[in-house]
């Protein structure tokens, strides 16, 4: 056996994992990038290299920009709401479990349930809840007296996107809750004890101890949820299919229709690549913010 340094051995042993990762993650991304430089429409026998022409077309494509706006609006609203509600639930659960000294599996199961249901199934359930004639939501609002006539949430171009946001928040808040709860459980209790001795109230303790220490977890939640929200497909597609009047057409719905319904593989890949760049850009932004936060607090 030849004499290899420990370092070289390490690389050698890790090589299969790197190759696998390359095949699973990098190859498809590269293939999509490559495809986005072609005009490929199998129906018309078109398969020609056109350089950046798809991206030029993308730049002047109103429907693309509209889809970007819808996607960012959806992402901003749903991720903010998920973080706030998730934080609240995490604090509540933390309280409940630390008081009684043990965590009840029922409480945790109830919080996690929406996350466990497949998105297509929960979107279908919400579609029934939103139904104008026999949907539960209209029934409740009418009974309480908040509205006079049933609202067709999904058929109204102003309401539709918000209906999708509410469903997404219900569905994915448990994810935020779970991560934040784990973070809360790991916080050193002596800091709180010391702060209490120094006379800090609950708000002060939350602002000066909980929030700063939990910041890395918050950023992880933000990164994961933003990535998912920018790519949102099934929830919105089942609820509205992108309508009415494209008011709920997100980037992935536009890419899906371009790729799989009108079979424009080159242009569809350009759309997918644009979406990838958007997600990567937002993630990079979060990482920079997190780094700055640590540098400031250090």
């Amino acid at each position: 056996m030849s004499r290899l340094s420990e370092r070289a051995w390490g690389y050698l042993l890790a090589a299969p994992a790197f190759v696998l990762l390359g095949f699973v993650a990098l190859a498809p991304i590269g293939a999509a990038l490559w495809l986005s430089l072609y005009r490929r429409m199998p129906v018309f026998g078109l398969d020609e290299f056109i350089g950046a022409a798809n991206y030029v077309q993308l730049w002047s494509d109103e429907r693309f920009w509209a889809a970007c706006r819808v996607t960012l609006y959806f992402t901003t609203l749903s991720v903010t709401a998920e973080l706030v509600v998730g934080f609240g639930l995490a604090l509540l659960l933390d309280r409940l479990t630390s008081r009684s000294g043990r965590s009840s599996p029922w409480e945790q199961a109830m919080v996690l349930l929406p996350w466990a249901v497949p998105t297509v199934v929960s979107a279908q359930i919400w579609k029934w809840l939103y139904q104008p004639d026999y949907g539960l939501l209209n029934y409740l609002l009418l009974r309480v007296g908040l509205i006079d006539a049933p609202i067709d949430w999904l058929a109204d171009p102003d309401w539709a996107i918000h209906a999708a946001v509410v469903m997404d928040v219900w569905k994915t808040t448990p994810f935020a809750t779970l991560l934040l709860l784990a973070g809360l459980k790991a916080l050193p209790q002596d800091l709180y004890a010391a702060a209490t001795v120094d006379g800090a109230g609950p708000w002060e303790r939350f602002r000066r101890i909980t929030l700063p220490l939990l910041m890395p977890i918050v950023v992880i939640v933000l990164v994961f949820r933003t990535m998912d929200a920018v790519r949102v497909f099934d929830a919105v597609f089942v609820l509205t299919g992108g309508g009415p009047g494209n008011t709920t057409e997100t980037l992935s719905i536009y890419a899906y229709k371009t790729l799989f319904q009108t079979l424009q593989f080159g242009y569809g890949s350009a759309l997918a690549t644009a979406m990838f760049i958007l997600v990567a850009g937002l993630s990079a932004l979060y990482v920079v913010l997190l780094r700055r936060h640590f540098q400031e607090s250090a």
Partner: peptide
């Protein structure tokens, strides 16, 4: 489709 749908809801 999106154009006519926008007409149906009064957006165009």
């Amino acid at each position: 489709q999106p154009e006519i749908s926008a007409l149906v809801v009064g957006r165009k």
